[in-house]
């Protein structure tokens, strides 16, 4: 598999407070990578830095062979990196359809066809297309956030704790959808999660993050046995 994302010695933080310390990460085309870690270990910061929301202080980020370390979030999104942030972050005043249109507008291609395809992939959205995003349930909003991200036809999707506050039935549905999407679209996905079952069922490779460093790789089938505080096999 060819390399899509290559991160070398990545460091970043909030103001003068460093959070990430020398992250090295590589994701191949079509690969599903999970990042597991406790609260405050730098999981979300890693995704925000990859997306350009937080600038990298040291290190490089290369996407599809191009250095995007200094690129703006908008430029990275246009290059093919999709981001579904924690807390869904849909546009509450816009209808479901308008949320999808906003997601598709940057592609510059046939919006209607792209949106129709996404709606087929997320049938739960079909009956609620005219409803305002703000009145949807948490699970529906999460599905909408993912669908909106896919409207931009990304090659890599960064998913930040998609199961946070979502009811179990929707989590199962999301799991099935993500599996089929990754296969059908040959998507690369970087999933940050605390839900062990979710990450073990989806990821082909799981990395542990501790105090801003990737501390090792965990066998996805043995996640329940792993002690994130120490019992991790070196990468």
């Amino acid at each position: 598999m060819s390399e899509l994302l290559s991160v070398k010695n990545l460091q970043s933080g909030y103001g003068r407070i460093p959070i990430l310390f020398g992250i090295d990460l590589s994701i191949a085309k079509g690969e599903f990578v999970g990042v597991l870690g406790h609260n405050g270990m730098g999981k979300s910061t890693l995704l925000r830095t990859l997306m350009g929301h937080i600038p990298a202080t040291v290190g490089t980020i290369a996407f599809a062979g191009t250095d995007v370390t200094r690129a703006s979030p908008a430029a990275r999104a246009r290059a093919g990196i999709g981001y579904v942030p924690q807390g869904r972050q849909i546009f509450p005043a816009l209808s479901v359809m308008d949320n999808l249109r906003v997601g598709a507008a940057c592609t510059g291609r046939q919006q209607t066809i792209i949106i129709e395809r996404v709606i087929e992939e997320f049938p739960r959205l079909k009956p609620i297309l005219t409803r305002a995003g703000g009145v949807l349930s948490g699970g529906e909003q999460q599905i909408l956030a993912l669908a909106r991200c896919l409207c931009a036809e990304p090659q890599l999707v960064l998913l930040d704790e998609p199961t946070d506050g979502i009811q179990p039935s929707i989590i199962e549905e999301m799991k099935d959808t993500l599996k089929s999407l990754a296969r059908a679209r040959n998507l690369s996905i970087l999933l940050v999660e605390q839900n062990l079952e979710f990450i073990s069922d989806l990821a082909t490779r799981v990395l542990a993050i501790k105090r801003g460093q990737l501390s090792g790789e965990i066998d996805p089938t043995k996640l329940h046995e792993a002690d994130l505080a120490g019992d991790i096999r070196p990468a």
């Binding site: 908008a74 999104a77 546009f91 906003v102 507008a105 931009a152």
Partner: peptide, 24 residues
């Protein structure tokens, strides 16, 4: 139009819109 929807998206949340690829 695409432009109008993008403008509304920026109004709703500038950073969110930029993360979707818009030059706010």
């Amino acid at each position: 139009t695409r432009f109008g929807r993008a403008v509304i998206a920026v109004r709703e949340n500038e950073m969110r819109a930029e993360l979707l690829g818009y030059n706010a």
